[in-house]
Amino acid sequence: MSGFDISVILHALPFLAKGLGLSLALTAVAMIGGLALGLVIAVIRLSRFRFPAMLAALYVNGFRAVPLILVIFWFYFLVPLLLGRPVGALYSVLIAFVMFEGAYYSEIIRAGLKSVRPGQWQAAQASGMTYLQTIRLVVLPQALRKMAPLMVTQGVVLFQDTSLVYVVSLHDFMTSASIVANTQNRIVELYVFAAFVYFAICTTGSVLAQRLSSGRRHAY
């Protein structure tokens, strides 16, 4: 190996930046979609309707038992089959991530909702609120403060997980770095650089999560 050649990285910077853009976009869509889906699942699981609650539990435990790569393969294969036409890797992957993250976010949200004191639930019910009103107006605003740090932490995990789209050759940051590494034959530079970028972004996220959780403690 002949020295650390930084010019390769500088040359490839626009290409890498595009990859990073896709990684961040994937993270954002999966996070927003996952939170929305997770909220619905959590609310169903905590409701008094036994059968839907059971199905929701089955969904969560099912997705949590299998690796994300397998889920990506599943949807990569299933989505075109169900739609009857090829849709490209991106859409399959987006659906896979939203469904998968929904299971994880629902656990965070469920724990958050359950952590609100029973008195709050009972008082809301006593004032004549429906189940959904209770969640929306009383429980969720209180639970949100407790859930925020965990949601950010899960977001960091999710950002790292987007690197797995490598297996279906979507050009995210990881795959872009790998492409440059192999075409320019500069494996060491590119992978070390990629590690630094991931580390910097994830550390920022982790610090934010810590701030949020210590800020919460001061608030009370």
Binding site: Q160, M174, A195, Y198, C202
Partner: peptide, 18 residues
Amino acid sequence: NVFRNVPLLLQMFLWFFV
């Protein structure tokens, strides 16, 4: 911090190729 903040896929590549 280092091992938690770099994706496992990339860590595998680092150990294997780098």
